[in-house]
């Protein structure tokens, strides 16, 4: 990860993505400030792998997904899919390459048009992009449906006749029908029941093994992310604070926020009394983020230097970095410098 693989092996490469939403006020709608929803995020996903993006609500993880899809226009940065920077494409070119990256939404109820049959929902974009010849269209739809665990007679049913889990299968089928190389899944299971969650996650894993799709899996549920991901990035207030391979990150979480997040997950075992790190307070507003390390207002190990200097990526191993002054080898110098400038 550190020495990035060559472009051919990457399904997606995001570099320094920024998305600021303007805050407008008054009759003239002039901009008075910006909400820094995503503030300089870089990561990459190799082919056939899953990158899990975790964080609490409002940390900007959903914005990242939507920006990569160009459902929202980015402020800065680049997202490279197949050697093409998606952010630089014109509308027409963009439409042509859209089948390569698809999305699964959180709410299985509002993400399907209630007035279209399942066949039409899945087939709409297939027809638009001529994925298969017209004569094979119906057979192709049925094939995709079968792949996703739907039955052929359901093709003319309407979304309201399905339960949440099946609707999510339809969403997956809709994305899958375009032969994408990347699927951005935004909280795909958080609206589902536990036993149904497992079905959908397993389906996604099976499809990955079968077809070699890459996932950008956005979720607040750490255990699900741990299960499905190969690489994990932890977000806080618009920035990645820690990123690494799943093994490294879950075995040895470094950032105080990651640790708090992990310890907050309830474990279904009454005998395990966890030494819980309970974070005080709420996430600060992204319109007015704290100076220095954005987490310092809630951090237990906050140092003087954290309040003034934004930490850099500290690579602790080949595939694991953390943005925290605690792991900064030159911390003493930085801190001294900070104090010096202050006392002067």
């Amino acid at each position: 990860m550190k020495n990035m693989q060559s472009n051919e092996t990457l399904a997606l490469e995001v570099r320094d993505l920024k998305k600021y939403f303007p805050i407008k006020k008054g009759v003239t709608q002039h901009t008075v400030g910006h909400v820094r929803a995503v503030d300089g995020v870089s990561f990459s996903i190799p082919h056939g792998k899953t990158f899990g993006l975790v964080g609490e609500s409002g940390c900007g993880k959903t914005t990242i997904g939507r920006t990569i899809l160009r459902l929202i226009d980015p402020t800065e940065g680049s997202a490279i899919i197949d050697g093409v920077d998606v952010f630089k494409l014109k509308k027409k070119q963009l439409r042509k390459i859209r089948p390569k990256f698809q999305m699964i939404f959180q709410d299985p109820f509002s993400s399907l048009d209630p007035r279209m049959s399942v066949g039409a929902i899945i087939g709409e974009a297939v027809r638009e992009h001529n994925i298969v010849p017209r004569s094979e269209h119906n057979a192709y739809i049925l094939k995709v449906m079968k792949q996703c665990g739907l039955r052929s007679f359901q093709v003319d049913r309407y979304p309201h006749e399905f339960s949440g889990g099946q609707r999510q299968r339809i969403c997956i089928a809709r994305a899958l029908a375009l032969n994408p190389q990347l699927i951005i899944a935004d909280e795909p299971v958080s609206a589902l029941d536990v036993s149904i969650q497992a079905q959908v996650i397993n389906l996604m894993k099976d499809l990955q093994e079968e077809l070699g799709i890459s996932y950008l899996f956005i979720s607040h549920d750490l255990s699900v992310v741990e299960y499905i991901s190969d690489y994990v990035g932890v977000m806080y207030l618009g920035s990645l604070v820690e990123m690494g391979s799943k093994k490294a990150l879950f075995k040895e979480p470094l950032h105080p926020y990651t640790r708090a997040l992990l310890s907050a997950v309830p474990v279904p075992n009454p005998e395990v009394k966890m030494n819980r790190i309970i974070l005080e307070g709420d996430v600060p507003s992204p319109a007015n983020p704290p100076s220095g390390c954005k987490f310092h207002t809630r951090c237990r190990q906050c140092m003087e230097v954290c309040k003034n200097f934004e930490p850099k990526e500290n690579w602790v191993s080949e595939d694991h970095y953390v943005k925290c002054h605690l792991y900064d080898a030159n911390i003493a110098e930085t801190a001294d410098a900070a104090l010096d400038t202050k006392s002067e």
Binding site: E56, S57, L222, A260, L261, S263, A264, V265, P266, L279
Partner: peptide, 8 residues
Amino acid sequence: LDVTIQAQ
């Protein structure tokens, strides 16, 4: 709620 808030 979020996990950290849930813990609180």
